[in-house]
């Protein structure tokens, strides 16, 4: 849908070099994250509150943080890069590759908006580490369109108004993509089962299931 060119353009770039500020420090997200971290820190001088504020935005750069070199394929492009051991896969994708299609809703395995495919299987990118993705193939929503064409499933999502606010959509698309890859003609129950790990807080489930059923009839993911 968005950004697939960008994802290729950052390939092979070294990231996470802690003594250099990274180039997106002034992005909107970085700004918001930094602001809320500052607000939190201002409210409380306790160490715990300041440490907790880390989770609000991009991690502050810290020297001597354990790092590991990994090779990972993201949306078909190979990345040789260095990641901090503590980065979740989602932090790596969003904050360091700037693939912001997968979302953080809960950051604790309870919403599904961060779903990406690892070696073809949907997982919560908030609940796995980037260093564990070494040698794996990652597919994010940015990798679904091919040559400027939305995937059949993306097209069906549009036609059925499957996104309302759209926050859960990328996660729903990834779970449904994996389903149709494995089972091109699912029943409605099988679709529901496959999407059971993706909440939609707009509660647009019927339209989402219809879109997946429709895509399956028009020929796959």
């Amino acid at each position: 849908m968005t950004n697939s060119r960008d994802s290729n353009s950052v390939s092979n770039e070294k990231v996470g070099d802690s003594d250099k500020p990274s180039h997106f420090d002034l992005s909107r997200r970085g700004f918001i994250g930094g602001t809320s971290a500052a607000l939190l820190a201002a409210k409380s001088t306790s160490v715990k509150a300041q440490e907790n504020s880390e989770s609000v935005g991009v991690e502050p750069e810290v020297a001597n943080v354990p790092k590991t070199a990994i090779t990972v394929t993201v949306n078909g492009a190979s990345h040789q890069t260095v990641v901090e051991d503590r980065w979740t896969l989602n932090e790596f994708l969003r904050d360091h590759l700037e693939l912001t299609g997968s979302k953080i809703g809960c950051n604790r395995g309870e919403c599904g908006s961060c779903t990406v495919l690892v070696d073809g299987e949907p997982v919560y990118s908030c609940s796995t580490l980037a260093v564990w993705a070494d040698g794996k193939e990652i597919l994010t929503v940015e990798g679904l369109e091919k040559d400027g064409q939305l995937s059949v499933l993306q097209q069906a999502f549009m036609e059925h108004n499957a996104p309302q606010c759209g926050f859960c959509t990328s996660g729903q698309l990834m779970s449904a993509t994996a389903l149709l890859e494995e089972n091109p003609e699912p029943t409605v129950d099988e679709v529901r089962h496959a999407l059971a790990g993706n909440l939609c807080r707009c509660s647009n489930y019927n339209a989402i299931v219809e879109a997946v059923m429709d895509a399956s009839k028009t020929g796959g993911a």
Partner: peptide
């Protein structure tokens, strides 16, 4: 257990 994503990981 949980969801497909939790069972996959």
């Amino acid at each position: 257990v949980g969801t497909p994503q939790i069972r996959n990981a």
